[in-house]
Design a protein around this nucleic acid. Structure first.
Lengths: 335, 335
DNA sequence: TTGTACGCGTTATCAC
DNA sequence: GTGATAACGCGTACAA
């Protein structure tokens, strides 16, 4: 059996409350007794039981994190940040992986709540009614990553996806591209896919290029879907001079599909990615992409979360972090 | 305030104990009362408080997981598996990231213990005395991944790294390679690096090739270190016909270093990886590598953990999962 | 400054 | 079959 506060009290010849005061520094205790208690704690190796503490304090020092897929460079890096910052503030994280399934997410929201987590950091693009129900019914602090949720009165940390996609499209246009296909995330209820399309559309129209539905391909955050979309372009004889993909991974998949069909990047087709993950130090040609402060996104989200837990008013409901266009070797100027 | 068992009892006009019996199905309760209780639970949305439950049961339904870096394809995939299987059995996981620092690992071992986790899945290669101390002093169920720890009487799930590296080396030798450099993990206290060297050495000697110290380069599980090692080979004019890297990522980095110096893969140098992560669907040329059942490693480890938690005797202290050599485009036969 | 006693939400032991 | 009641380990009014 582990040593409890009771044992410490007995050994130090003081009351339980005094021990509690010493370890929490909650009320003044005479130096002598303090020393005595510390000595016993030292000797016995006493560690307060966080479960009992949680029960009475109604605080668990736990933050729930819901993500769609751990095995992604982007999410892994975000998790690195969340975990690191949370630990700094004495919080631990409970990890929930959903494979992007909305009902799974809702289940985890409820499960985490029942586990008494003090807040939930939520990484998803799609929001369904059950999500909204949960948010409405529970005043649990929530921070969304990569998804503006200010309409739900939920804090979020993200970059401006619409603007970023606009810049990406604009860059291609300014480099002579006229036929540009977009592989976006086409899942229903997904604002990310909508943002991308709007950014793309805005740039096209701004430069007097026609927006065509058939240039929009719907993928699903999986490399395979981008490969298939690209194969479809080829099969449909709808090959553009530039392809904008939803993620770096999907840009890579698109590139590989092109290559497997005998096309060269960027000689035949320019391809751009998104997120600028570590993938870019791996794949050749290096991808032109939108660089995002991935670690910072996780770090800022966690700091906002901790502020909310502590009841401090957070100034903004949405924090937009800066992004930048990084031009590398997967794109070229055409005439 | 959340509704408690007390509220349910009152509303259903029964005692607390009866409610407890109903929700846990621990003792017979008359059908009628059961129905009444269920009805109240339904109406109030009552959910048992796991914290209170943990306190009395001394069980937290929590499994701690310690990993060196979340943002790695290998670890991400292992985590996917751990999370999925754990959830299946009603366990949640608390994630701890160490960046491979041993003292950080020890700190987390203690922290997790104090958090009342029921077991710890531990992914590391290096073991120092403080680790052993912890294992000796605590009878908490531990499962090690990727690291034989049977000497510490700790269960582990891994592949046979020595054999795998032997096979990799043998494959190169059989394809005419005589000068083969190994970029291994050279951190102190790391058995993985030792296994690799032994496997490499065994193959070399078996085929009558001299084992030379200067063919061993010490990296550290980071792509950058493999890049540097390779650059060093070039600078030292110690360029082999084949390079064996510690991980796929490091193989890619080595390849990129070679390319940046004007060498082609596999024309000038054959490069092989290890782990066969998703990287291999990305990088070109596709890497020859050792394929491992990554997801299964995590899944099996979690199942073993749950068995240990439940006190079921696990037959083996070490579970070796199969690996296989996958030949792709980064290696070639030479004369 | 210190100690007593209660409560947090459950489960489990005992009576009935 | 059902209901009090004592734990579980801790924080905290309240009293001293």
């Amino acid at each position: 059996m582990a040593v409890t506060i009771k044992d410490v009290a007995k050994l130090a010849n003081v009351s339980i409350s005094t021990v509690s005061r010493v370890i929490n520094d909650s009320k003044p205790v005479s130096e002598e007794i303090k020393r005595r208690v510390y000595k016993v704690i030292e000797e016995t190796g006493y560690v307060p039981n966080p479960v009992a503490r949680s029960l009475v304090m109604k605080k668990s020092q736990l933050i729930g994190v819901i993500v769609p897929n751990i095995a992604s460079f982007y999410i892994g890096e975000v998790l690195n940040a969340i975990e690191e910052i949370a630990k700094t503030y004495g919080y631990d994280i409970i990890l929930c992986n959903t494979y992007g399934e909305a009902d799974q997410e809702v289940r985890y929201l409820n499960l985490l709540k029942s586990k008494q987590v003090e807040g939930i950091i939520f990484l998803t693009h799609r929001l369904i009614d059950e999500h909204r129900d949960f948010f409405a019914k529970n005043k649990l602090p929530i921070v969304m990553i990569n998804r503006d949720a200010s309409d739900l009165n939920i804090s979020s940390v993200t970059v401006n996806h619409k603007l970023a996609t606009y810049e990406l499209t604009k860059y291609l246009i300014e480099n002579g591209h006229k036929k540009i296909n977009l592989i976006r995330n086409g899942e229903s209820n997904d604002v990310f896919g909508v943002d991308q399309m709007e950014g793309y559309k805005k740039a096209m129209e701004e430069f007097g290029l026609e927006f065509k539905e058939e240039c929009i391909y719907n993928g699903r955050f999986k490399m395979g879907t981008a490969y298939d979309c690209t194969q479809q372009m080829i099969d449909e004889d709808n090959i553009p001079t530039g392809i904008i993909a939803t993620t770096d991974g999907m840009a890579v998949a698109a590139s590989n599909a092109l290559r497997d069909n005998g096309y060269s990047i960027p000689e035949d087709v320019s391809v751009v990615g998104y997120y600028d993950t570590k993938l870019n130090s791996i794949y050749r040609p290096k991808l032109t992409s939108i660089k995002q402060p991935i670690y910072d996104i996780g770090a800022v989200a966690t700091r906002v979360m901790i502020k909310k837990i502590k009841g401090e008013e957070t100034s903004d409901n949405i924090i937009i972090l800066p992004h930048s266009l990084v031009v590398r070797d997967s794109t070229r100027k055409i005439d």
